[in-house]
C-alpha cells in the first residue's frame, strides 16, 4: 500500500509536470505519436479495406494478411527497425503503424461488406456512380464498424506506444523504462496510471464518436439486424 501512496505523491509533485521530462510533455508526446500512427495507418488501411468491402474481391487474401500482421510481435519489429534506422521516432512509428493497420483494415472491409446489398443495388439502380455509392451510401452505413476498428487500433497503439521509449526519448514509456531499470517503482506505476487515464479518455471519446456514427447509419434506429 505504501507503493500506492508513493505513486500518488510522485504524480502530485507539481515540479514533475513541467520540463522536458515532465508529465505534460510526455503525455503530449504519447498522444501525438498515437494520433500520428492511427492517422497514417488509416490513410493506408481504410482505402484498401473499403475497396475490398465494396468490390467483394480479395477478402480472403487481405484477411489472411491482416491476421498474420496481427501476430507480428511489435517489440521484435521495433528491434529490427531500430537496428536498421537508429535511434529516434522513425523505427517506433513504423512498427506501431504495422500494429494499427490490421484492426483498421478489418473494420473497413467488415463494415463495408456488411452494408445490405439491396441498398447498394438500389443506389446503383438510381444512377449513382461507384464512387458516389461508396461515399454517400456505404461509408455512412459502415461508419459504426469502421469506427469500431479505429477504436480498437487506437487502444492498441496507445498501450504499445510505450515501446517507443526503447529507442527514443519520447512518451510515457520513459517513466516505465526508467522506473523499471532503476527499480523506482513509484515512477513506473505513475507512468502506468497516466497511460491508463489517457487510454480511458480516448476510449470515451471514440465510443462517443462511434455512437454518433450509429446515429448517422440508422437515424431512426430501425436498421435491420445483420448476421455478421
Amino acid at each position: 500500500m505504501t507503493l500506492v501512496f508513493e505513486t500518488l505523491a510522485w504524480l502530485n509533485d507539481s515540479a514533475r509536470w513541467a520540463g522536458s521530462n515532465g508529465i505534460t510533455q510526455r503525455l503530449l508526446e504519447h498522444l501525438a505519436v498515437t494520433a500520428g500512427v492511427v492517422l497514417v495507418g488509416a490513410a493506408i488501411a481504410l482505402p484498401v479495406g473499403i475497396t475490398v468491402g465494396h468490390t467483394h474481391r480479395g477478402r480472403t487474401v487481405v484477411a489472411a494478411l491482416a491476421g498474420a500482421a496481427r501476430a507480428i510481435p511489435t517489440l521484435g519489429l521495433l528491434t529490427i527497425l531500430g537496428l536498421a534506422l537508429g535511434i529516434g521516432l522513425q523505427a517506433p512509428v513504423l512498427a506501431l503503424i504495422v500494429l494499427a493497420v490490421p484492426s483498421l483494415l478489418a473494420g473497413a472491409y467488415a463494415g463495408v461488406e456488411n452494408v445490405s446489398p439491396a441498398t447498394v443495388d438500389a443506389a446503383r439502380a438510381s444512377g449513382m456512380s461507384e464512387l458516389q455509392i461508396i461515399v454517400l451510401v456505404e461509408l455512412p452505413l459502415a461508419a459504426p464498424i469502421i469506427l469500431g476498428g479505429v477504436r480498437a487500433a487506437t487502444l492498441q497503439v496507445v498501450a504499445t506506444a510505450t515501446l517507443a521509449a526503447y529507442v527514443a526519448d519520447v512518451g510515457l514509456g520513459r517513466y516505465l523504462y526508467a522506473g523499471l531499470k532503476t527499480r523506482d517503482y513509484p515512477q513506473m506505476l505513475a507512468g502506468a496510471v497516466l497511460l491508463m487515464i489517457l487510454a480511458l479518455l480516448l476510449e470515451l471519446l471514440l465510443s462517443a464518436v462511434q455512437r454518433a456514427g450509429r446515429r448517422v447509419a440508422s437515424p431512426s434506429g430501425s436498421q435491420l439486424p445483420h448476421h455478421a
Binding site: A71, P73, L75, G76, L77, T79, L83
Partner: peptide, 26 residues
C-alpha cells in the same frame, strides 16, 4: 521466451536472431 531473442539480438546487433524470434512467434 522468444522475446529473449529480441533483447540478445539487439545487444549484439544480430539481425537474424531477432528475425528468427519474430518468425517463430508468428
Amino acid at each position: 521466451s522468444l522475446g529473449t531473442l529480441f533483447t540478445d539480438g539487439f545487444q549484439r546487433g544480430i539481425v537474424e536472431e531477432v528475425l528468427t524470434g519474430m518468425v517463430l512467434t508468428v
